[in-house]
């Protein structure tokens, strides 16, 4: 019965706080240089090696809603491109076998993390993966930052010009 006493006390103190601005950067699995403020939506990205041989990478997206109402979030609104050793630019797409990645709304003050697979039309060794996040939060009046690119750095990928 001890939990019963802790339950009201914890609730009175607000034991489940909402998202606070820039909190997405506190996680080492995303690169703080990828941070984007899109009005209500804040988002930061990280890349890690692919889990499947046919994929280019796994994209880690951390995001939070700084507003007191839901805000739009659409990973399909990001334009992904890869650059191979010859400098050819080719589009990357999200691997979504269950067609579950589409426009949703981040609940008020909520935070989230999603990891998706990125794949090129043909398996290639990439020297950069670039993101243009202009369409990630449809309806946002806040202008997105410019496109940015992740480049390999040892086992990791990091945002570099």
């Amino acid at each position: 019965m001890r939990w019963l006493a802790l339950f009201p006390l914890g609730f009175a103190l607000g034991c489940l706080p909402g998202y606070s601005s820039h909190a997405v950067n506190a996680h080492p699995d995303v690169d703080a240089r990828s941070f984007q403020n899109l009005g209500c939506l804040e988002v930061a990205f990280g890349l890690r090696p692919p889990a499947h041989d046919t994929d280019a990478a796994v994209l880690i997206t951390r995001f939070g809603n700084t507003c007191l109402h839901p805000t739009a979030f659409d990973l399909r609104g990001i334009a992904f491109s890869g650059v191979d050793r010859e400098g050819h630019v080719l589009p990357l797409s999200i691997v979504d076998p269950r067609a579950e990645v589409h426009l949703l709304h981040v609940d008020a003050a909520a935070r989230g993390i999603e990891k998706v697979r990125l794949r090129a039309a043909a398996p290639l060794e990439l020297t950069a993966i670039c993101l243009n996040v202009a369409g990630i939060s449809p309806g946002s009046s806040h202008p997105p930052g410019p496109p940015f690119c992740f480049r390999p750095s040892g086992e990791y990928w990091e945002v570099r010009p």
Partner: peptide, 22 residues
């Protein structure tokens, strides 16, 4: 099985944060 969308079997994209799926 995994924490990656598409490889996950117990939950869907957006289950833990989206307004629509709460």
């Amino acid at each position: 099985q995994s924490d990656i969308t598409g490889d996950r079997v117990c939950s869907r994209f957006g289950d833990l944060w989206s307004h629509e799926r709460s």
